[in-house]
């Protein structure tokens, strides 16, 4: 038996909205520690890794490990029916073929209950393990989203060049070029506005703009995004949850 109660439906809504355009369906792996998802997008360029730790939930129990195959478009439609501030409880029996979804209005005496048919999804898990990182940038997620949107008008690729004291985002396209430089900044009054750059090795990596457009759909999940970059390796874009994370692993573009 799985049962997880979110304090606010908005959190699961944001998670699903951030994932559903990259991945149409995925397995929710439920254990006593929480719920995790790993899924690769249809073009096999972007990998999503989600961890919702049990502390994220107001109440959580999972008696036995269970895997729930979920169509994210369908889940999105159903959870769109609840108000952001509602309690949202998901539950499933051990051998369930459906996921129960219950919204509780905190003011009105109103409870809404839905069932989502589960899918049988055959998917390999990839070992993304801990990896060495050459450069790590942490910046406001809204700023990163704007950089990606602004650069996308110029080119299908966004080049990220990190040196000791700056990160340069560069697009070179048919209509012209664009450069945005950010530098480390500590804002004591507004720590969410701070920018940090740590560097072991200078980085020059290119990523597909259309995949970055998918990644920044997670912006509302966290005020900050952490970008981990390693030469000729996937970039990791991490949005922290109250307890857990949503990470995107994006394969780079480079000459062989």
């Amino acid at each position: 038996m799985l049962e997880g109660k979110f304090e606010e439906a908005s959190l699961l809504k944001k998670i699903v909205e951030a994932m559903k355009d990259c991945v149409s369906s995925c397995n929710f792996n439920c254990t006593e520690n929480g719920i995790s998802v790993q899924a690769v997008d249809n073009s096999r360029v972007l990998l999503i890794s989600l961890l919702i730790e049990k502390d994220t939930f107001e109440e959580y129990r999972c008696d036995r490990n269970i895997t729930l195959g979920v169509g994210l478009g369908s889940l999105s439609k159903i959870i769109g029916n609840g108000a952001n501030s509602d309690y949202l409880t998901i539950s499933a029996d051990d051998d369930a073929d459906k996921l129960n979804i219950i919204f509780e209005d905190k003011v009105k005496d109103k409870i809404s209950e839905y069932n989502l048919k589960l899918l049988d999804i055959d998917a390999d898990l990839l070992d993304v393990g801990p990896m060495d990182t050459d450069a790590t940038i942490t910046l406001p997620s809204a700023d990163f989203a704007k950089i990606c949107k602004d650069m996308k008008v110029l080119s299908e690729s966004l080049q990220i060049i990190v040196t000791k004291d700056s990160a340069l985002f560069q697009s070179v396209g048919d209509i012209g070029t664009g450069n945005i430089v950010i530098r480390p900044k500590t804002d004591i009054d507004h720590p969410e506005e701070s920018v940090t750059i740590s560097l072991d090795k200078p980085i020059d990596l290119s990523f597909g703009s259309k995949y970055l457009s998918d990644i920044i759909k997670a912006t509302s999940l966290s005020q900050k995004v952490t970008i981990k970059l390693t030469d000729q390796s996937p970039g990791v874009f991490e949005y922290k949850l109250p307890s857990g994370y949503l990470r995107f692993y994006l394969a780079p573009k480079f000459d062989e």
Binding site: L47, L125, G208
Partner: peptide, 14 residues
Amino acid sequence: MDKQHSILSFYSSF
């Protein structure tokens, strides 16, 4: 010309 690599080429299956 840069080539878009597949994420599957970087990680192995469990």
